[in-house]
Design a protein around this nucleic acid. Structure first.
Lengths: 134, 134
DNA sequence: TTCTCTGCAAATAATTTGCACCCAT
DNA sequence: ATGGGTGCAAATTATTTGCAGAGAA
């Protein structure tokens, strides 16, 4: 299967890189629609799938929520806010993970996914504020 | 809000404990239906939510797939098979994780989720078999 | 009796798919 | 020109919700 670089695909890739964030399919759709009003959400989904299969982007499957996509390819973990659901990258240096290499429980290990959950600085402030009001 | 122990709730809890696995809502529904044919899937979902809020069971949100539920309450991580999607518990001893305690990136940390992905023994055999046939 | 819980059906949310036309190669 | 890609609408999958009646406390 040959990949073709269509305008839609190029635009999706460009907007994802531009954002530097972790966008969901519909957030990306909203952004791309500003330049290509006739693009469909299905096209966005299809391209995100194809691009992540081709290892050009990364699909994040975090916590049972919507999938999000990341243009940063290097390995890293994530931290996400239980309150506002924002996701940020977490550098390996910050945490310190040693995992079984090769085998565990008879499994051949192919990877790992590590999410740290917490309250982001913004939401911490919001919560302390609302407590004061009470 | 007072919790009532209805027959449905009791049965859901019993079947989840009996299975010792990581069941999805509809798998549990199928099992419970054998004893209570008129139970509805909505009741299963509502009870799983209530029971996990009450910390009587655990909700697992793994890898963008269906949610699964576990009656084992003690902290542990999971390993899951990328081929057949089975999930197994992973004891802390097997892996070795050191995470930032308290703070990282300005976040107040509340928890972590660690999934190791791999090929389970059964799927490994299947794959080597199918290669031989080729 | 009271108020949570239940079954049913309909609603929602995220994502996928069938189809006929389009366009990058 | 050819076969992958697109837009649209409809289908799927997982989950949630409104409502009227049922039943645990």
């Amino acid at each position: 299967m040959q990949l073709r670089m269509t305008n839609q695909r190029e635009m999706i890739l460009r907007e994802l890189k531009k954002s530097k964030g972790h966008l969901s399919a519909d957030e990306l759709y909203e952004r791309v629609k500003k330049f290509m009003p006739r693009i469909s959400l299905a096209t966005v989904y299809r391209n995100l799938e194809i691009l992540s299969d081709a290892r050009m982007i990364r699909k994040l499957e975090i916590s049972g929520r919507q999938k999000r996509y990341d243009s940063v390819l290097v390995d890293h973990d994530h931290i996400y806010c239980v309150e506002c659901h924002r996701i940020e990258n977490l550098e390996l240096g910050t945490s310190d993970v040693k995992l079984p290499v090769g085998e565990a429980k008879g499994y051949t290990i192919t990877g790992r996914r590590l999410e740290v959950t917490g309250l982001c600085p913004v939401c911490q402030k919001k919560i302390t504020k609302s407590k004061k009001i009470k």
